[in-house]
């Protein structure tokens, strides 16, 4: 498996392991979800967004891959108000007006929850203990959260849906094995020198050790 797929899975697994019920991690990119489902569980999706291979003088086997992952967060919220007062037939107009004035809009609630979830995600992926994303040391280098963007709120049905995303960049080495890997025949490269041209004598039984050393 190429490194970008390994890291994609590692990022997803890392977020799942540290979510603690604060959000759900979905593996498919931008799949259709019911706004009610998103309201119950803020959704985090990780996907490989783009990559750059720097041209070098090396051979075709190993390539440096600068990769960017999009970590998308989506929340849905409703407005909040003191419904007990609004539904109370004995409430005065002043009491109702106060409850209405104290109500918060779904957009504000969604914005608050999105910021909170984004903070959770950032703290997980930038935690020094998670520098290697759970992979063997050295697999990932230069992990960095490069940018953040927030979308406009969308009115979906009775709810407001809001999305934002982090851009996570890192570097890893890709190894080219071919689409159908070939197992090459072993080549014996052991040195078995019996004599050189400069007058020294080597013992072939000792694999190149100089005689009289």
């Amino acid at each position: 498996m190429m490194a970008f797929r390994t890291i994609d899975k590692a990022l997803t697994d890392l977020l799942i392991a540290n979510a603690n019920g604060a959000f759900h991690v979905e593996t498919a990119q931008r799949r259709a979800l019911d706004a009610d489902y998103i309201k119950a569980h803020p959704i985090v999706t990780v996907f490989y967004e783009q990559g750059n291979f720097q041209k070098g003088s090396g051979g075709p086997i190993f390539s440096m891959h600068d990769m960017t992952f999009r970590i998308e967060v989506m929340v849905a919220q409703s407005a909040t108000v003191d419904l007990r007062t609004l539904n109370d037939p004995n409430a005065t107009s002043q009491q109702i007006a106060s409850a209405i004035a104290a109500s918060t809009s779904a957009t504000v609630n969604a914005d608050d929850l999105l910021d909170q979830t984004l903070e959770n995600v950032y703290q997980i992926i930038r935690d020094p203990r998670n520098y290697d994303l759970g992979l063997p040391v050295g697999t990932v280098s230069s992990p960095w959260v490069g940018s953040f963007q927030k979308d406009n709120p969308l009115h979906q049905g009775e709810l407001v849906v809001l999305a934002g995303s982090w851009s996570f960049t890192c570097r890893a080495t890709e190894v080219t094995k071919g689409a159908t890997p070939v197992t090459l025949a072993a080549v014996d490269t052991s040195i078995n020198v019996t004599a050189d041209q400069s007058g020294s004598t080597y013992d072939s039984a000792k694999q190149g050790a100089e005689v009289n050393q």
């Binding site: 409703s78 407005a79 909040t80 108000v81 003191d82 104290a102 709810l159 407001v160």
Partner: peptide, 27 residues
């Protein structure tokens, strides 16, 4: 809660209004 951010008629109707209720939960 009524969504008053969305125009209720857009100035294109003669005599009716469209209103868009949004869910409100207990705070």
């Amino acid at each position: 809660k009524l969504n008053t951010a969305r125009p209720v008629d857009g100035g294109e109707t003669i005599g009716f209004l469209k209103m868009y209720p949004k869910r409100a939960d207990q705070e």
